[in-house]
Nucleic acid binder design. Structure first.
Lengths: 338, 338
DNA sequence: GTGAAAGCGCTAACAC
DNA sequence: GTGTTAGCGCTTTCAC
């Protein structure tokens, strides 16, 4: 990457002059058109890109706030990022210390390729959301000096904010048992995610314990999308035996599932009850309205910022884990009236 | 903001030592426990936050890539950010020059408060999405030296990528006319957005031209959300005269509208046809599936990056406007079979 | 074990 | 109009 020094040299002017021109202040300082032209030419030729850090260091002055990065994985459907961001906003308002927020998208399983985590040269602290199991492994193995808070994951090494995913799975099984179902099924997003594994495990364990029949073929893995849920239900409907209740470990997939059931003429909840996960805004408006596991995303986002802020201000040392309660929201698709 | 110099002074050590300790390399350089303790104490007391720019400048070395910022407003529903990010990813893969991506959330009408736009101290170029009319005004008036591309907005000053929003509105009116509707209505998100204004204008103008009746009371403004659409339809259903087709200028609102219509027992499309906007993933899976105006979000995102990259590499000077075609997707809710 | 000093790339104040 | 120079805050090398 060419520096301004090289531009100056190539254009045969001083560094200061080059800086003025490239900073758009050529006219203001009355640099001659010819010189300006020469400088821009040189910049173009060397594909000059200003070094933002240097510029900021020099002219930042008072306004340098500590930076908090939010790592959000790109592959998983971003349905919840909106709610998360709103929680962050709220937290920032209530804190004394001001921060800059920077969202760092990353690709699942490739967290290790984000160098800034190791070098600590982009932000003062980070919240990491949606790491895959490989990403989690990377985090455990790495020794990062940037304060970090994990969202919806556990760790001995880092602070974290989460709900008891296992328990939420159990609760859905319990709900199905209390509603006298005998055969149940589950729709699992095909992604590497500890939280999802735990939800599934909680559900299957509890189902077994309560004598609910959950056959292997009724454990349907599918793409983490509406289409995934839709296709999975179509696969299900070709089987001889059907469950009477399904747990979809994602609202999006449940939306696809509802559609597939509707198309096949199978009534929800009469012939099949359905429970989703997340409490996405859409769930109130599906037909029928979708029962779901409410995730206190906004509150958890707030807690992430608060924990991170404490870490960054040296107010805490040992990793702290903050557990939130989630609850079942019953709507028409299973046990509710609305 | 305290600097490492002050920490060193307070702890009565040299700057270098302080740096080592605070950078987590105290043990590596065998700084005594006492000294380390003193330094950390001092940092804590002065709430030391490392200046990221300085750190990066010093230790960045080779890996400093030019930074592209994506400005995304927080208030508007972020439904489309996912698709946009995927488009960006694709564009980054196909370019020679590598970039860092940074997402800068902002609050509608408050774009002017994002100082970095004026100072140019955070990124080398920016894509600005969802500005309100006030934000657009700010952009027109300001003189920014950072290369900028506007998404879905027009400007004489900046490059932009968009579809002809006015035309899309017209096309929906045309569709309604061709389907022999006489009375039509429209659901408008209550946000300040030039694109939405144009869609509305196109629709109303064309409706008038074609002799479709669009009364003032059937032009319903509501919150940009499922609930907004839901509430608006409930208001509508209390009126004496009803339209037989509605244009919802957002898929989310259309989802709420479908729910409200379903609850009232009014059949879509038989008694009321409905067309949404955006072609959100959900539209294929609503009941019935939603006709909608397809927005080539991914392609536009890609174009944004390409335009911006050209600007940043001095390959173009004059603002360039890139127009994309959108098209109507007909599904069951209006004119389609699927 | 710790201090002193150089220098990352840039901008701005001051020469001339 | 343009060149020279200081210094932003940090890390790291070298000296002792």
């Amino acid at each position: 990457m060419a520096s301004i020094k090289e531009i100056a040299k190539l254009a045969d002017v001083s560094q200061g002059t080059a800086s003025m021109v490239l900073g758009g202040k050529g006219d203001q300082y009355r640099i001659s058109a010819v010189t300006q032209q020469k400088i821009v030419e040189a910049a173009k030729q060397l594909n000059y890109q200003p070094n933002i850090s240097a510029r900021r260091l020099r002219s930042g002055g008072e306004t340098v706030l500590p930076i908090i990065a939010l790592f959000w994985s790109l592959d998983v459907r971003t349905a919840l990022i909106n709610r998360f961001l709103h929680g962050l906003q709220r937290a920032f308002h209530s804190l004394e210390q001001e921060y800059e927020l920077l969202i760092q998208p990353y690709v699942g399983n490739k967290l290790c390729e984000v160098n800034s985590l190791l070098t600590g040269t982009r932000y003062n602290g980070a919240i990491i959301a949606n790491p895959t199991e490989l990403d989690e492994q990377f985090l455990e193995d790495a020794s990062l000096h940037v304060p970090i808070v994990l969202y919806q994951r556990s760790s001995d090494k880092y602070s974290s904010v989460k709900v008891d995913s296992f328990k939420t799975g159990q609760e859905v099984a319990q709900l199905f048992a209390s509603r006298k179902h005998l055969k149940v099924g589950v729709l699992v997003p095909e992604v590497s995610s500890n939280a999802i594994q735990l939800r599934l495990q909680g559900f299957t364990d509890k189902a077994k314990e309560l004598g609910l029949e959950l056959s292997e073929q009724h454990t349907l893995y599918a793409d983490f999308s509406e289409k995934g849920g839709y296709d999975a239900i179509h696969r299900l409907l070709e089987m001889e035996e059907l469950p009477t209740a399904m747990f979809s470990i994602s609202d999006q997939m449940a939306v696809g599932a509802l559609k597939a059931l509707h198309e096949s003429g199978r009534k929800v909840p009469d012939e099949m009850e359905l429970v989703g996960y997340d409490d996405d805004a859409i769930t109130k408006f599906t037909i029928p309205a979708l029962s779901t596991v409410h995730l206190p995303v906004e509150e958890m986002a707030e807690a992430c910022v608060n924990l991170l802020s404490d870490l960054m201000q040296y107010r805490s040392h040992e990793p702290i884990s903050k557990l939130f309660e989630s609850c079942l929201i019953l709507r028409s698709s299973c046990g509710g009236s609305e």
